[in-house]
Computed example of a mutant assay.
Amino acid sequence: MSSRIEQLIDEIETYIDNCKYQPFSNTKIIVDKEEIDELLRELRMKTPDEIKRYQKIISNKEAILNDARAKAEALINDATIHTNELINEHEIMQQAYAQANEVVTMATKQAQDILDNATIEANNMRSAAMQYTDGILANVENLLTQTMKTTQDHYDSFISSLNQYNDVVNANRVELNPPEPDTIVEDPGAAQSSSEDLNLDMI
């Protein structure tokens, strides 16, 4: 059974897939801001709960190990008690010690096997939970990146349109109110020609 956060990601992906493309574009889409904000808001609210749930699974590793340690200690205690009973009940001390050592060795091996298996199981659970959580966060990251890119593209397009409109308005104002020249500048070529004629007359 999938979690609510997975369902939300699927809903957002489906929503994005169903959005219409902008005119003359195969990559930019038109989104309903309120609808996408609502989906993202719920995703943001659900994500901490999902992560806490998987953190709880990871924390169960310690409970498994503690239970294994308790079982191992119980086995060793039982073996020690049995050893003492063998020593007290048997007249041949060497046989009693041999049997006791064998029991302790077997109990220790069983205890180690329990700890090893418990450690492997706990590590597997922790690894699976971390991979699953990381996968969810990766999907969220990809979704947020795509959303931010789409928003930036819309913003850039909007600013470009405003600049174009502003240029048109400025041009229209200039046409309505052309600047009046403060002084009339004579043709520099004519002034130079007059000066040359005067010099020729003087010669």
Rank of each mutant, 00 (worst) to 15 (best):
R4M: 04
R4I: 04
I5S: 00
I9C: 13
I9Q: 12
I9H: 09
D10P: 04
E11H: 12
E11W: 11
E11D: 15
Y15E: 00
Y21F: 15
Q22I: 09
T27N: 14
K28I: 10
I29M: 09
I30A: 12
E34H: 08
E34C: 04
E35Q: 15
I36M: 13
E42D: 07
M45K: 03
K46F: 02
K46S: 01
T47P: 03
P48N: 01
P48S: 01
K52N: 06
I57S: 08
I57M: 11
N60I: 00
E62L: 15
A63R: 15
L65Y: 01
L65I: 08
A70D: 14
A70H: 12
L75S: 04
I76L: 10
D78E: 14
D78H: 07
H82L: 09
H82M: 04
N84I: 04
E85T: 06
L86A: 14
L86H: 05
E89Y: 09
E89C: 02
H90M: 12
E91F: 04
I92H: 10
M93R: 12
Q94Y: 07
A98D: 09
N101V: 07
T105V: 08
T105A: 14
M106N: 10
T108Y: 03
Q110R: 11
L115Y: 04
N117P: 01
A118S: 09
A122M: 07
A122D: 03
N123A: 11
N123T: 11
S127C: 06
M130Q: 12
Y132F: 15
I136R: 01
L137F: 05
N139R: 08
E141C: 04
N142V: 04
K149L: 07
T150E: 09
D153G: 03
H154Q: 06
F158M: 00
S160R: 09
N163R: 11
V168W: 03
E180P: 02
P181I: 06
T183W: 06
I184M: 14
S194W: 11
S195G: 03
D197N: 15
L200H: 13
L200D: 06
I203Y: 15
I203E: 15
I203H: 13
